[in-house]
Amino acid sequence: MGAMNTKVIEAEYDYVKPASLDEALDILAEKENVKIYAGGTDLLVKLKMGADLGMDIMMDINGIEDLYGVDKTADGGLRIGAAEKIWNLETNADVIAMYPILSEAMHLMASVSVRNMATIGGNFCNASPVADTVGPCMCYGACVELKSKKGVRTVDATEFFLKPGVTVMEADEILTAIILPAPEENTGAAFTKMARVRPDIAKVSISCVIKRDGDAIKDCRMAMGSVAPKPLFLGDISAELAGKKMSAALIEETAQKVHDFVKPIGDHGTTAEYRKEMAHLIAKEILEKAWENSGGELA
């Protein structure tokens, strides 16, 4: 990277702030090189670091009422508007009660001031492998709702991400909401994030939601951050646990599978080998904790 000056934004572009979703979708359909501004905590950092985003128009979505709200769905789940701020969500009584590790993961993000700005939609659409809201959402079985002039579609959170910065979203689409299904009885969840100091982005994070049936696992979902080029849903490893009787041996076996499966990269300050070792350790911890939180006991 060349000389950079984070005091100003050097890129030049127009700014628009549509007042409705229809207006925003029209702009996306008709204009080229539009970038959405939600909280700006990823977008503006990139602009200031001199990234060439090819942005001709910055579209501010903060004036669109349809993108706000945390509402109960007909089936007892929750619909979270994409432009809701992380801080609003982590302190929302329904989010805390129904999806505790989503609230927990949000609380561990960045700092209060950043969370007052950042949105959940931005965390998803930025599509970083570290995105902290994504793992919990995947484990709770969330879908994302995408809208364009052509209509609406919902995509399972586990199928939304393709590679760093890239999702299945088309250029004319807006992520309008994250939709979470109703929590079930005897469900336990756990989240852990390892970082050097708190405001750091995660070196490794892991989320787990277990549905318990007596002393057996009815269903288990695990996801990890920062161990692959995209947020990683451990679909196969999780699925193998369904129907099995829970035990310390099963947890150890599963943690080893996680270790063998993940393909992290090394970067400044964290080697790939360290990330793999940590993956093993925290997978074990998270399975024990989620099981305990589901009301289960370890033989």
Binding site: Y15, D60, M117
Partner: peptide, 9 residues
């Protein structure tokens, strides 16, 4: 953080 807020926003 005012360093990361566009004034127009």
């Amino acid at each position: 953080m005012s360093c990361l807020v566009p004034a127009v926003a």
